[in-house]
């Protein structure tokens, strides 16, 4: 039996066959439905571990305090005790191996993040001691008078 319908049909069947054969080679073996079911959990399982292995850069005060105990204690006894060392000193990563030296942000802009006064009564911002950066020694670095670890003058 010869028909114009057969040839395209074989072609389609052949294509389906090739796709089915190639699929296991292209799709990773750990691809499947996860805990959240087909709609939300269809994924490559090993990607979860790839994200878990992502490099941690900010190590928090606990990492700093063993070597820099003096600075840790002075900052912890000051009004700045809630601020992480790394907020100004930069992420520790694997310091002291890599990087050997951290770049300290002593800029005025860093202090003004909190201490430029904004008249927002509904926000905690207006309760922080603030200055008008245009009026308060505009050309000076804050750290020339204020010790960031012990910000009260003369402290």
């Amino acid at each position: 039996m010869k028909s114009h319908a057969w040839r395209p049909l074989w072609l389609i069947l052949g294509l389906v066959g090739i796709i089915l054969l190639a699929r296991p080679l292209v799709v990773p073996s750990d691809f499947g439905t996860g805990e959240r079911g087909f709609m939300y959990g269809y994924h490559r399982k090993s990607n979860e571990d790839e994200w878990k292995a992502f490099k941690v850069k900010y190590r928090t005060k606990e990492y700093c305090k063993d070597c820099h105990q003096e600075n840790y204690e002075s900052s912890m006894s000051s009004k700045h005790n809630a601020i992480q060392c790394e907020n100004c000193h930069g992420p520790a990563v694997d310091h002291p191996e890599e990087p050997a030296k951290l770049v300290i942000d002593k800029s005025r802009a860093q202090c003004l993040r909190c201490h430029s006064y904004l008249p927002y009564e509904q926000s905690h911002r207006s309760k922080i001691k603030g200055i008008d950066p245009k009026e308060h020694n505009p050309d000076m670095e804050c750290s020339m008078c204020h010790n960031p670890h012990k910000p009260n003058l003369g402290g």
């Binding site: 996860g34 805990e35 959240r36 709609m39 939300y40 959990g41 994924h43 490559r44 990607n47």
Partner: peptide
């Protein structure tokens, strides 16, 4: 019910059982 996960045509973004939605960068 993350809409971003529903629309992904290749299964590159997904929700882990603990609720976090991740993106598979290689996929």
């Amino acid at each position: 019910s993350p809409p971003c996960v529903q629309v992904c045509p290749v299964g590159a973004t997904y929700q882990v059982g603990d609720g976090v939605v991740l993106v598979d960068r290689s996929w």
